[in-house]
Design a protein around this nucleic acid. Sequence first.
DNA 1: AAATTTTTTAATCATTTGATTAAAATTTTA
DNA 2: TAAAATTTTAATCAAATGATTAAAAAATTT
Lengths: 204, 204
Amino acid sequence: MAKQTAKKADLSTEEKIKDAARKVFTQKGYAATRTRDIAEEAGINLALLNYYFRSKEKLFEIVILEKMQILLGKIGPTIMDERTSIEQKVEQIAEHYIDTLVANPDIPLFVLGEIRNNPDKFANLVRTKTKIVDSAFFKQLAERRPDIDPLHFILNMLGLIIFPFIGKPLLQLITGIKPERAVTLMKERKTWIKTWFLAMLEAN
Amino acid sequence: MAKQTAKKADLSTEEKIKDAARKVFTQKGYAATRTRDIAEEAGINLALLNYYFRSKEKLFEIVILEKMQILLGKIGPTIMDERTSIEQKVEQIAEHYIDTLVANPDIPLFVLGEIRNNPDKFANLVRTKTKIVDSAFFKQLAERRPDIDPLHFILNMLGLIIFPFIGKPLLQLITGIKPERAVTLMKERKTWIKTWFLAMLEAN
DNA sequence: AAATTTTTTAATCATTTGATTAAAATTTTA
DNA sequence: TAAAATTTTAATCAAATGATTAAAAAATTT
């Protein structure tokens, strides 16, 4: 008992496996992940993974549903809110997502990559269909800029927020920027994105 | 001879394999790709893949180097050009990349995903190190907005251009947008991105 | 056209990988 | 504390997968 690997000593076996699965799956993706990697990372016997979760696939589903919830959970309620302005919505979304993604930088590439590899699988899962285009945000944008498809501004906002996290490995490769500097940069963006978004909204 | 699968009838075996490899690797990533998938897509015997390219790994390297060149090749020369303005650079880059990505929409997610899975492997490959931060573009941005790190604007530009292609599977999932509509949307952005970028550059 | 070289195929290998099993160890219940 | 239930382990399986081999087929050279 005195020489557990600290961090995971107190967690239940099931939680140790889930933690390890979260880490390995999000870092490498489903296909590149070996169940043995997860077992080793969790410090447990491989058979336990199947004992608790039946299969790699089942464990994966638990993890990716969590991650999709993190990535998509906040956006729905925020853009549906009739009482907040465009400005407030953008501010809320930018703040929330940058904080979330600084803590979970691997999520976007992970989720988008898995959706690419298996679009059908998530088709039913995202029952948000036609939700965004009926949202208050959408209507507000259309009213402000009747000449531009509101989808453009949705894409702009998400691009400004999410892309830096997706592009970070490349950015580090081509600029040699340090990880801490990258985090600082992301946090700086929290305040700027609202300003930039509003500027784009007025642009001609 | 009269009943080849048309398209590939005239290509050499080597090219048929490369074509198939480009398609399967970029769509599913290295780990999720089976050499048998490539052989089948190419309409050749599996052993031929190894006969011509030695291994899955070797064939993959050929493909990803091509794709990285497509993704990164244009940006270097453009941002280094001392004689063009910020506006011209952004216009050139937006036009070029959106055309390129409409024709090759899978590239960004593919390349960024593989870099994530194997950062070390591409470390030496991207010898652009310290190039961007010494570029004319960087200096011009720093001069125009001394109060904001030029990297922010690089990220903004790339986010506006590239993110829609990375996020397309998700966008289609949550909006039900048709693929053709998505392409139209991307092309519309070609003209707007310069405007939006300049607006962000002036924003306060 | 015979000989040589190149290309292609079918069969097979060795390793990896997800999963199972039966037994051992541990914990909980009675 | 004995019995029962739960958890863990080591060994092993079957299928998938990257790769090789030896022989056949086709193309090229002499």
